[in-house]
Simulated scan of single mutants.
Amino acid sequence: MDTAQRLKKPGVTASRDKSEAANTLAPHTPVQTRRAFEEVALQIRSQLSSGKLRPGDRLPAERDLAEQFGLSRNTVREALRTLEISGVLEFRKGTTGGAFVREGQGDGVVTGIADLYRLGTLGHEHLTEARMVVALATTRATCERGSQMDLDALVNNVRAAETAVKAGNIGERVSINLEFFRILANASRNPLLIILTDAMIEIQVLLLEVLTPAPSSTVMASRRRLLKHLLARDTERAISEMEVHLKALEHHYVSQRRNAPAGATQSGAWQRIRRQT
């Protein structure tokens, strides 16, 4: 994604010796089901929930897991790959490598939500409603507990967006404007709001493949008002401005979807939007 680098997600630092953790894990229960790899993944997730596995821990070797589960190594490997794709595990190479529990990150969640949109499970109206809830929550949290460093980052973001507007670089302005929401979410100090914001932006980028961005004059005027309220830590006015801004964006995008030429060659993104209109 070319909009901006993701903000670093909050994680947990493991304090146990990794080899010790791998050797002291509770034994697994042999599996006898048609989709055995799902049960393997479920048992590993259960150990995470119970605290028997923690971020940074290394799982036993694939051969040892296969013996504990009473399954083939291929089945265990499939389960581990499933957990890797979902963001639970990561694989490291070398003599000290293997399957490790990842530090707390939301990449798998973001990808999953974006895929639900691509599949049509999530419609544009769902995105609009969820984006409103998340953005207003992050605005409130930033007013209440954002640091001065967070506020400075927002100021710099708005200045960069204004520079892009003066240069006539709309694509850069849009990218910077989306980054504003990441900074706002990071200032909330709420990992879930950060992950959900990333997911909303991921879908917004898909929409902007076929929809024209809102006019710079409208967006930047609202952004300057919002920034003023954030710097003053005026929670209610900041929330009100954010709500007005998002409703204006929705009106802008709805108009485009309704007026799109039916006979034009449509990309997959346009077909997805048409199904949701």
Score class of each variant (00 low, 15 high):
Leu71Met: 04
Gln105Trp: 03
His229Asp: 12
Thr111Ala: 11
Thr82Cys: 13
Leu89Thr: 07
Asp17Arg: 07
Arg275Leu: 09
Gln68Asn: 02
Leu211Ser: 06
Cys143Met: 06
Glu39Cys: 05
Thr111Val: 13
Val174His: 11
Asp107Tyr: 01
Arg92Lys: 08
Asp234Tyr: 07
Gly94Thr: 10
Val88Cys: 10
Asp150Asn: 15
Leu71His: 05
Gly268Ala: 14
Arg145Ile: 03
Ala21Arg: 07
Glu129Pro: 02
Val165Thr: 11
Phe91Leu: 14
Phe180Tyr: 14
Ala185Gly: 09
Pro261Trp: 00
Ala14Ser: 14
Thr277Arg: 14
His28Ile: 07
Glu125Asp: 09
Ala248Val: 05
Ser15Tyr: 05
Leu231Tyr: 13
Ser86Lys: 09
Gln204Thr: 15
Glu144Gln: 06
Ala221Ser: 14
Arg73Tyr: 05
Glu38Val: 14
Leu119Met: 12
Gln148Met: 12
Gly108Tyr: 10
Thr13Arg: 05
Glu78Cys: 04
Arg16Phe: 03
Glu179Arg: 07
Arg237Met: 13
Leu122Ala: 06
Ile44Arg: 07
Ala264Leu: 12
Thr24Met: 08
Ile239Tyr: 04
Glu67Ser: 11
Thr139Phe: 02
Ser50Glu: 06
Arg92Asn: 09
Gln276Ala: 12
Val76Ala: 04
Leu89Val: 01
Leu83Asn: 02
Ile273Trp: 07
Thr138Gln: 13
His245Phe: 12
Gln105Ala: 13
Ala161Trp: 01
Ala4Pro: 00
Arg118Cys: 01
Thr139Asp: 04
Asp2Phe: 08
Lys18Ala: 14
Pro261Asp: 06
Ser50Phe: 00
Ile203Phe: 02
Val76Thr: 12
Asn177Ala: 15
Ala269Trp: 00
Thr265Ser: 10
Gln5Ile: 09
Ala137Pro: 01
Gln204His: 10
Gln5Val: 08
Arg77Thr: 07
Gln47Arg: 12
Val109Phe: 15
Asp152Ile: 12
Glu78Pro: 00
Arg102Val: 01
Met242Leu: 00
Asp107His: 08
Pro60His: 14
Glu243Gly: 15
